[in-house]
Amino acid sequence: MEAFQEMLTEELGNEIMFTIPIGNGIPVANSVVISWIVLLILMGATLILTRNLKMEHPKKGQLALEGTIEFLNHFVQENIGTHWKGFAPIIGTLALYLITANLIGIFGVAPPTKDISVTASLALISFFLIYGAQFRYNGLLGGLKKFAEPMPLLLPINLMEVFVRPLALCMRLFGNILGAFIVMEMLKFVIPVVLPGIFSIYFDLFDGTIQMVVFVFLTTLFIGEGIKEEE
């Protein structure tokens, strides 16, 4: 039991891979390095997939790519409304990064979303997106007025939501991935063969995908809530 706890503690900490020797030294955590790998994978895949796009007679790969992008555009348009065009690539980037980061656990690499700093950073981005959009498209006064909707009585709750939303987003992603990771580690500790593989399908594939969908969906929904006109 003690051994397991030690191992778990060791697994849970974000070790620092190396330190950039500038000033006092900037620590580069493990998760950041894995993020770079994720970035490299995504960029490589992008360059390969979009190598020669044709307007006429597209191949299967191109059709799948177009279908995905169209689905994303449609989803963003449905949830954000008229100003969707600028948001689609941001939402798509978040989705692609999250799904790759979550699913990289299959290959035995600790997913970067297990690190609370990474999810905090993601939540920060979605925080800026949500409230930036709200003030950008409603003006300063209109954006402030949004906090008093649907009625002024809800003002404190809405103001509280400003902090609760990103915190909940951050903690949800972190907690889910970390929980899945811990359960997987425990399984590997108890039964090292076969069983972890089966459970990995649920915890890595399913849970990772669901968490990506939830994060992207909630971010899109909150952005849309902030800037959508009343119908």
């Binding site: 900490g13 970035l39 995504l42 960029m43 609370i116 905090a120 950073s121």
Partner: peptide, 28 residues
């Protein structure tokens, strides 16, 4: 494990911005 690491947050932000710019140009 539950402390926010300033450098990691910053790096992730930079990573995502780079990824966004790259994907916006080459994918989307």
């Amino acid at each position: 494990m539950l402390e926010f690491q300033g450098s990691t947050i910053l790096f992730t932000l930079i990573n995502l911005v780079v990824l966004y710019l790259f994907l916006r140009k080459f994918l989307f």
